[in-house]
Simulated scan of single mutants.
Amino acid sequence: MITRDSHRRSARLITLLAATLLLVLLQPVASAQAAATTARDLLASLPTATEVRTGYDRNLFNHWIDANGNGCNTRAEVLIAESQTAVTRTGTCTITAGRWYSPYDQATWTAPSDVDIDHMVPLAEAWDSGARSWTASRRTAFANDLGLAESLIAVTDSVNQSKGDQDPAQWMPSNGAYACTYVTAWIMVKYRWNLSVDQAERTALTSRLNSGGCGDRTIDSPPRA
């Protein structure tokens, strides 16, 4: 015999199940919304500090390691990932040919010797902005960061050399159409590694973000390193 209490218990159970299902369905949406941000908001969260170059040595950043032991070091991994065609290689992972587009100057290269892997935020700039207090292992992680596509980018070697260790207040790519992408990537890397910006750098970044709505474009918040 089905009693009134049985009906009530069934109704409560159905309500509970429905509420649980709703929470499960909404959770990914809430997470996705939480991950959305803008370059302007990321920049606002970065501390402002005077840069300190004292003690810098490029060798303090152990770069181009083979982190996953597959025979390809970090440089090779980026060359493989960014080539517009399947790369040619010899041995385990010596890249001999591919096709790389350099957004800094809109040049295309097929010989890996013509391409540098640029640290979006140069090693010296990272040191100046906080990496001087890091452990050796954290500096190695920064120098070989494959966890954020914006951290390392294949570009024309001579252009990378002209950039050197300069920040956006001192150097910008000649490809003006890439300016928004460049400063956004710069800010994302600094946010990911909790690095500071100096006042001139902040002013230059803000100026670029104010151009054409650049700073208000929705981007995914970079994962903290």
Rank of each mutant, 00 (worst) to 15 (best):
R99S: 13
I95W: 01
A81V: 08
R58L: 04
S102A: 15
L42T: 01
T88V: 11
C72M: 03
A86Y: 03
T48R: 10
G71Y: 09
P103L: 10
T48P: 03
G71R: 06
R53S: 15
N73A: 01
N62F: 08
G91S: 03
R58G: 08
Y56E: 07
I65M: 09
R75N: 03
I65Q: 15
L60F: 10
P103T: 07
T50Q: 12
T50A: 13
G69H: 05
G71M: 02
T38M: 08
G91K: 01
Q84W: 02
Y101Q: 10
T90Q: 14
T38Q: 09
V78N: 09
Y104I: 11
A44R: 12
P47L: 08
T88W: 03
R40S: 15
R99E: 11
T90A: 09
E82G: 06
H63K: 07
E51D: 11
A67P: 04
E82A: 10
P47Y: 10
D41G: 04
T38R: 11
A81D: 14
R75M: 03
Y56L: 10
N62T: 13
A97C: 07
A97D: 11
G55E: 11
T92D: 08
A44S: 14
T54D: 15
T96A: 04
A39M: 03
T88S: 15
D57H: 14
W64H: 07
L60W: 00
V52C: 01
R89V: 00
Y101A: 06
C93E: 01
I65Y: 06
T38I: 09
S45Y: 11
D57G: 08
T38H: 03
A76W: 00
A81I: 03
Q84G: 13
Y104F: 14
R58E: 11
D41I: 12
N73C: 01
E82P: 01
A76M: 01
E82V: 03
L60S: 12
L79S: 00
E77A: 09
S83Q: 08
L46N: 02
A76T: 06
F61Y: 02
Y101L: 13
G69D: 09
I65L: 15
T37W: 07
R75L: 03
G71I: 06
V52K: 12
T48V: 15
G91D: 04
T85I: 13
L60T: 08
Y56T: 07
I95A: 01
A76K: 00
A36Y: 03
D66R: 07
N68L: 07
T94D: 12
L60K: 13
A76L: 00
L46K: 09
W100N: 04
Y104E: 10
A86C: 08
N73H: 05
S83W: 07
V78Y: 06
